[in-house]
Design a protein around this nucleic acid. Structure first.
Length: 205
DNA sequence: CTGACGATTCACT
DNA sequence: GTGAATCGTCAGC
């Protein structure tokens, strides 16, 4: 795959106001990282929307603006990466306009380039389909860490491209989000999306 | 300064 | 199904 011939998603794509729409549109797009000369890429298969200050599941709920969440308040098109459970990094795409803290969590993807390098980033051997299944593993496989938070997703180290693949509306499955029970009623919102029948999807099969 | 805890993963029962 | 790993972040004092 000729990664460098593919077009990066535009700033306008990220800055639209409907984070749910962007979450669905990101399915099928390709995340690329180029770290220390190593290029790896994976097609997004599962996402979740985090919808601003009224979403109890969001870090920006109740307009909580801290050093950590600050990047969510910036213009769409940046990476928001944070450490979860002191163990795993989780990668989000910041969307919408400045001061509107929306983001899309990438929960799973399908390797399309450099999978052999992805394996070297794990301590233990990964079984088929599991290497990029789950938000912590997507970051591990692609080498994403805290240094990437705040980076422009149209830059050279971490970026998202389209190869023209489109995921049909009928092929998108919608469910509540995973791991957000603390969010009360908002945990039931239909904000998780994945590509039907794709083996690279987390949670219940 | 302190303590509680998390947008998870994996090994083990 | 249950519990450990492991530490940055944040609320509260």
């Amino acid at each position: 795959m000729e990664i460098d011939k593919l077009e990066k998603l535009t700033a306008e794509f990220y800055r639209r106001s409907d984070v749910v729409k962007i979450s669905k549109a990101l399915l099928g797009k390709i995340i690329v990282t180029r770290i220390d000369g190593i290029t790896t890429a994976a097609r997004i298969t599962e996402t979740e929307a985090y919808n601003g200050i009224f979403d109890r599941a969001s870090h920006a709920y109740n307009n909580r603006r801290t050093a950590r969440t600050e990047v969510m308040y910036q213009n769409g098109g940046l990476a928001y990466v944070y450490l979860c459970y002191g163990v795993h990094y989780l990668f989000n795409v910041v969307t919408n306009k400045p001061d509107i803290p929306n983001a899309v969590l990438v929960r799973a993807a399908e390797p399309v380039y450099g999978e052999e390098w992805m394996h070297t980033r794990f301590d233990v051997e990964q079984k088929p389909y599991t290497i990029t299944r789950g938000p912590g593993k997507v970051c591990r496989a692609l080498g994403i860490n805290k240094t990437h938070t705040g980076m422009d997703l149209r830059g050279d180290e971490i970026f998202i491209v389209s190869d023209g693949t489109s995921v049909k509306k009928e092929a998108i499955v919608t469910t509540p989000r995973i791991g957000v029970d603390y969010a009360g009623a908002d945990a039931l919102l239909p904000y998780r999306f994945y590509i039907k029948d794709n083996p690279f999807v987390s949670g219940k099969r």
